[in-house]
């Protein structure tokens, strides 16, 4: 043992081990540091602008005070519509992958394509919807924005639905089949029910993902200075307003941008934490 301590080879190995451990710790602190920094600045800048008028007044013209009411309302409408369009399609496609075509050729292609869509650049989705909706219709619209976001919702829901349905034990399906339940009923009554928490998690994650999306809305829903719930007209949304206001030279606008940024981040982080705790509660027992 005494020899081991003096051996230069051993001490060199010990030293590189210690250095590596130190670097790993430093890297982790570096990552956490960014999170703290970003959240701290966001809370500081955002909270200083929070007041009731943010929720009761529309976006102001340059140089005067106002709120974000129209942007918040627009974001809510577009997001709800996107989820309403995207979720059923996503759940059905995920069901096909997990229940009907688990090993079929079609499924493996769909799975691959879905994974690509899941991480495809969202601005390309915006271009796609511009080409198929905005250009033919001749004007920007809330509908186009909602469909663009739905295209982003679909792959998220497909993925989680498939994963969660695959976790449902096959014995449950066999038991249902053995008492003569047709397959569709088995899926709706048994499999969906067993996987419900997971599927809801997927939907929440999808909502979290789209509520911060800006790029696909820039040239689909565009923006609107005024309060508007007309889906056939350009519609304001929180992320696009933040984009426009942050890059403006007006101090009031920049302040509102920070407040909007805080609202979005709080929403998104809350949604993803709720989603996480839903699945965690299911996994632990």
């Amino acid at each position: 043992m005494a020899i081991a301590h003096d051996n230069p080879l051993y001490s060199r190995r010990r030293r590189s081990n210690a250095i590596a451990k130190g670097l790993a710790l430093a890297a982790t602190l570096f990552g956490l540091g960014w999170l703290v920094l970003i959240l701290a600045v966001l809370l500081y800048e955002g909270f200083s602008g929070v007041s009731l008028s943010v929720f009761t007044e529309n976006t102001p013209p340059p140089g005067s005070a106002g709120g974000l009411l129209n942007a918040i309302a627009g974001s809510l409408v577009i997001t709800v519509l996107a989820v309403a369009i995207g979720t059923p399609i996503g759940i059905l496609a995920g069901t096909y992958l997990a229940e009907y075509g688990r090993h079929s050729k079609l499924s493996s292609i769909v799975r691959f394509i879905n994974d690509i869509l899941l991480s495809a650049p969202s601005i390309v989705v915006g271009l796609f919807i511009y080409e198929i909706m905005v250009a033919p219709m001749g004007h920007f619209s809330g509908w186009a924005g909602a469909v663009a976001l739905a295209v982003i919702v679909i792959p998220v829901v497909v993925r989680t639905t498939e994963d969660m349905l695959t976790l449902v034990p096959d014995t449950l399906r066999e038991a249902a089949a053995s008492i003569g339940l047709p397959r569709a009923h088995m899926i709706v009554r048994i499999a969906y029910r067993a996987a419900s928490a997971g599927i809801v998690t997927g939907i929440l994650l999808a909502v979290a993902r789209v509520s911060g999306e800006t790029a696909p809305l820039l040239f689909t829903a565009l923006n609107n200075q005024f309060f508007s719930l007309n889906l056939n007209a350009p519609m304001p949304s929180l992320p696009v307003v933040i984009f426009q206001f942050a890059l403006s030279p007006y101090e009031e606008w920049q302040k509102l941008a920070w407040t909007g940024a805080l609202l979005i981040t709080v929403t998104v982080l809350a949604l993803s934490i709720i989603a996480r705790s839903l699945t965690a509660a299911r996994k632990s027992p």
Binding site: I38, P239, A261, T265
Partner: peptide, 17 residues
């Protein structure tokens, strides 16, 4: 989870920050 939250922050927040 904290590291994964970094992925959850919308990109526009990174932009404004």
């Amino acid at each position: 989870i904290a590291i994964e939250l970094l992925a959850g922050i919308p990109s526009i927040i990174y932009g404004i920050w």
